[in-house]
Nucleic acid binder design. Structure first.
Length: 235
DNA sequence: GTTGAGCGTT
């Protein structure tokens, strides 16, 4: 009862998924379970974590058995301060398999989406099919959100720049590959030469400092040797 | 040790 999500998705067919945002990176499912369970029957609580770091991403998913309870939880827990941070509770829009969810309920699957979902779900971003790739990109790209802060400033000045940047980015594919490559390379390097990974650069740098005409006396042995008159230089 | 828009796993 403490380990949620360990056994995979239990049953989302009759459950309502709630998305909890703005939670602290230290908040766990066990911390949210009692909080959400007080407002209704919580079926499952899951907090996505990073594959590399293993830390939580700052948001969680809470599944309720009934929509009314979920709605109540959203109304009651939305804006509640948890662990010193104000959390945001709202209905999930997408499912674990990219299913389309409406008000927490799974309306239809992405494989069956054709022309029926265009009723009230406006998608102002990207085209059909591009969303999947963008989703993966976001997952990997999210980190310290340091660069994003700069984008905020640009966003206020020129939105077209931001749009164009996301609209056409053939290099993005390279970024994704680099992420996976980085892991493999790191492991590979350790296995290749664990003893002398920095031998070449170290030697080169040392030699570079030597040929100094004005090096200090305390560094160059030659200077000591050459000193004609020197105080007691510790034999 | 850090970070802060967003949508999920066996």
């Amino acid at each position: 009862m403490s380990h949620f999500g360990r056994s995979g998705p239990p049953d989302i067919r009759d459950t309502f998924s709630l998305l909890v945002l703005n939670i602290t990176f230290r908040t766990t499912a066990d911390d949210l379970f009692p909080l959400f369970d007080k407002y209704g029957k919580v079926v499952d609580v899951f907090i996505p974590r990073d594959r590399r770091t293993g830390e939580s991403r700052g948001f969680a998913f809470v599944r309720y058995k009934y929509a009314d309870e979920a709605q109540k939880a959203v109304d009651r827990l939305d804006g509640r301060v948890v662990d010193g941070r104000e959390i945001m509770v709202q209905f999930a829009k997408y499912g674990p398999n990219a299913e389309r969810i409406r008000d927490g309920r799974i309306v239809e699957s992405t494989s069956k989406i054709k022309s029926r979902s265009r009723s009230r779900s406006p998608r102002p971003k990207y085209r059909d099919g591009y969303r999947d790739r963008d989703r993966d990109y976001r997952r990997r790209s999210r980190s310290r959100s340091r660069d994003r802060s700069e984008q905020d400033g640009y966003r206020g000045r020129d939105k077209d720049y931001h749009r164009r940047s996301v609209s056409c980015s053939p290099d993005r594919r390279k970024d994704r590959g680099r992420g996976y490559d980085e892991e493999r390379r790191s492991r590979s390097r350790s296995h290749g030469s664990p003893n002398s990974p920095r031998s070449p650069p170290r030697k080169a740098r040392l030699r570079d400092e030597s040929p100094n005409g004005h090096n200090d006396n305390k560094h160059s042995p030659t200077s000591k040797s050459i000193s004609p008159h020197d105080e007691p230089v510790d034999s």
